[in-house]
Design a protein around this nucleic acid. Structure first.
Lengths: 322, 322
DNA sequence: TCAAAAGTGTTATCCTTACACCCATGT
DNA sequence: ACATGGGTGTAAGGATAACACTTTTGA
């Protein structure tokens, strides 16, 4: 560390794909230690922009070319890094969301030491498709209850008492579940010391103290925080930008489209309303082909109408409640 | 520049206040060269987090304590900086949005070399409150017309032909004006070489070539881009978070509240609908007091109901068209 | 013929938009 | 009295949420 106000830049990407009904996240260092997002340093002398550096870095680590890329957030407090602060320069970490189609063969990925993992393995409480996740009532809410009881009136960082925050984030008594608040929920669990990452930051690992089951798989450094940011942003973006199609094959059935949206959103949608929505938005057009189904009547195949981007300002699948 | 992958971090803030019906932006170096946003370097050894460093930096430069602070975006391509790249380390610039109440006396600010300036001085085409801004038909649309004609089919960065982008951004023939697309519009003008900043980046200043009037006042470095990002984000956020109240005095009339929203959004709203909206959202409560008006019937005074934050998940002024 | 999945039609409800009108004060 | 801005009621239209039902294939 020579220049006083000089830092290293770390670029990390949450690369998302969907396989059938499971959303997947690209991780490196399979098997060896905690999974990590593909990440690399930014060297301004080698790459003109942050995004170019990121794409290069992903390609090098995972042999994968991603399409859609979006910047999420820049994290400066690397108290959350596993690496102690006094070794090497301080690192500022920029998180990205990237979308890609599921690659046909996993072999190339595996060769590069990468793999796709279901994202709900890291966030089991975020999947409400089949039923309300058991881990909520079995572990999270009781533990949060104890945490709020410890200091009922104490205002935490955001100027809200613990109980109110827990209610809003996890939708207890009356408050609705908001699938976009992925980051808020993770941060709350972090502050309550209920995720393993919190222990690295000097917090007592309440999880160990109370011998709770581990809440979701852990990731290296602050990567699970970046993934949470990515999930929340993607869930929000689905509703006002046609980003789902980055995750679909060129032609697809409406059911497959719905399944993909549901996989990402973490909840079921009403079939008829979904179809009407897609039609009304004129987001797709039939290819004429149809798919001899996996059992049942064959389904029409559709493709994304790229023209909508030119026609309407903010096309997305604005699904609401049902 | 010693360590290969090491950069400097620049923190810049768009500090917004509203005075009556004019939204204001805090600038430093009044009079001496182009106005600039308050900005400073991030030194991880002096400040634990980016946000703390930013607040300290603003306070030092402008003698102002800001309330609400939100990170906007991290820009890495400082081809847009006025400083040549080979002097000192490469700079990565993190932009922030900050909201504050208009300070009672401008003297303290002036002493620190800072001042509030109306933000529409930098973006005259963004104010649709009185009428459609003249600069659109007088200068922008004709110039953009020539630019699209130069290469009608050429896909620009975002894979859309120039004409389609111009239509969507500036709402020509049929497309509606979207007040949130502030950044998209600025970037389009930049690419078309119609704002002075573009000349620094090696682009021919079409503005000079065509002897157009200057399109809005210029700022130092990429600060106008950060301001554009801030304006767009704030306009969007008004609709789903109760952020306006950060700009209001503790008690205010409903008309003053509407005026503030209109000032930020850059367009007029329907009075009755606005009031019903505020009431339905239960965002405010009467103080009991009333203001002996500036002519006309005295108006009830209201205050922000902080409790809504605990009650409902995403309270904001979800105004639509009118 | 039956299960499984595709696909359609219709209605009740809420929210948005827009209109037109009345009230209280200072000059 | 009248101009000025504050404040309200109510109806038309569209979007959303929910219902039940028909069609086409493979086993």
């Amino acid at each position: 560390m020579s220049d006083p106000a000089t830092v290293g830049i770390g670029l990390s990407a949450a690369v998302v794909a969907v396989d059938g009904d499971t959303p997947q996240i690209l991780v490196t260092r399979v098997g060896d230690g905690a999974p990590a997002l593909p990440a690399g340093p930014f060297d301004p002398r080698r790459h003109r922009t942050l995004e170019i550096a990121l794409r290069t870095s992903i390609a090098a680590q995972t042999a994968l070319d991603v399409g859609y890329v979006e910047q999420l957030y820049t994290f400066g407090d690397l108290g959350r890094s596993a690496t102690p602060d006094d070794v090497g320069p301080h690192i500022v970490s920029i998180g990205y969301l990237a979308l890609t189609r599921r690659p046909r063969d996993a072999a190339a990925l595996a060769g590069a030491g990468a793999a796709f993992r279901p994202w709900y393995a890291f966030f089991p409480w975020e999947d409400w498709r089949r039923r309300r996740p058991e881990v909520l009532d079995a572990a999270i809410l009781p533990a949060l209850g104890r945490w709020t009881a410890e200091a009922p009136e104490a205002a935490t960082g955001r100027d809200l008492p613990r109980l109110a925050r827990a209610r809003l984030c996890f939708g207890c008594d009356g408050a609705p579940w908001d699938e976009e608040k992925v980051l808020d929920r993770y941060e709350l669990l972090y502050e309550a010391g209920l995720v393993e990452e919190a222990a690295r930051d000097g917090r007592t690992a309440a999880a160990a103290r109370e011998s709770l089951p581990r809440l979701g798989e852990t990731m290296r450094d602050d990567h699970r925080r970046i993934l949470a940011t990515a999930m929340g942003r993607l869930r929000a973006k689905l509703k006002y930008r046609p980003v789902v199609f980055e995750l679909m094959k060129p032609s697809f059935t409406l059911t497959a489209l719905q399944q993909t949206v549901e996989a990402v959103a973490g909840r079921k949608l009403h079939k008829q309303n979904f179809r009407r929505l897609v039609e009304a938005a004129a987001l797709v057009e039939p290819t004429g082909e149809s798919e001899t189904a996996t059992g049942g009547r064959p389904a029409q195949l559709y493709r994304f109408r790229r023209e909508v981007i030119e026609e309407r300002p903010a096309p997305g699948l604005r699904f609401g409640r049902g």
